[in-house]
Amino acid sequence: MNVIEILSFVGTELLWYGKPDIMLFPLGGNCSIVIPKDKNSENLLENEEQQAHTDNKKELTSLREHSNVSQFVAQAITFSFYQKRFQLLKPHYYQPRVTLIPTIAISDKCFDVYMYDTDNDILLRNEGDPIPLWNNLQNSSEATLNMGSVLQLWMLINHLQIQPDLSQSELEKFSGTCGFSSSFTYEHLKKIETECTMRSKFIYRN
């Protein structure tokens, strides 16, 4: 039996187009080399540690490059509209409906979380630097998985069951601060909500 793989993308032709929902950063991996311990090798190890630190810093900043952040925001908003439509199609299953939908921008060393609320036009991102996936990353031989980060990722993936939301005071403070919904008419927003779906092809328009 032949298996045909069909790639699916989330979106609507009323919004922007870009890369698929999962974005990878192929910055290369580390290679461990066993060498005799002498003065030259000690200098080499110091250089490798400095290079690893530089690579880690580069990967941290890559998640925050303007072009990448723009893409993540676009994906977060699009995915939130898709989730809203998905939940409205099955109201008996999703009670109460979750409006604060997360999108994870992740590399092999760290991740950022973007959360968009379609009902209140609120866009959030984790405060500070990207969240590390590893402990002691400067020394690859002692690096361990950050279990706190693993728990956060698990909660984000299962957001429809955990049902994240904001307090009433937070809603009053941040409602409309994204400025996305205010750039469209009510009718246009409703059309986006209706047509945002998953399919294998969208027509790109400049």
Rank of each mutant, 00 (worst) to 15 (best):
M1C: 09
M1W: 09
E5A: 06
E5Y: 08
S8V: 10
G11V: 02
T12K: 03
T12M: 06
T12C: 11
E13I: 06
E13R: 10
L15H: 05
K19W: 08
K19T: 13
L24R: 08
F25W: 07
P26I: 01
L27M: 11
L27C: 03
G28W: 07
S32N: 02
K37F: 00
K37Q: 04
K37G: 00
D38A: 01
S41A: 15
E42Y: 00
L44W: 00
A52S: 09
N56I: 15
N56L: 15
K58F: 09
S62M: 09
E65F: 10
S67K: 12
V69P: 01
F72L: 05
V73Y: 09
V73H: 09
Q75F: 02
T78Y: 01
Y82L: 01
Q83H: 07
Q83G: 01
K84W: 11
R85K: 14
Q87S: 09
L88M: 07
L88K: 05
H92C: 05
Y93K: 15
P96R: 06
V98L: 03
T99G: 02
I101C: 11
T103A: 05
A105C: 10
I106Q: 15
S107C: 03
K109H: 11
F111L: 09
D112Y: 02
V113M: 07
Y114V: 02
Y116G: 04
T118I: 07
T118V: 14
T118M: 01
T118E: 13
D121Q: 06
D121N: 08
I122W: 03
L123R: 08
R125L: 07
R125N: 11
E127Y: 12
G128K: 05
G128T: 07
P130L: 08
P130T: 06
W134Q: 09
N135W: 05
L137I: 10
S140T: 09
E142S: 13
E142N: 13
T144Y: 00
T144R: 08
V150W: 01
L151Y: 07
L153D: 02
I157W: 06
Q161S: 14
E170K: 14
C178A: 11
G179P: 10
F180G: 04
S181F: 02
F184Q: 01
L189H: 08
T194G: 01
C196K: 00
M198C: 11
M198K: 13
R199K: 15
S200M: 06
F202N: 04
I203H: 10
R205P: 03
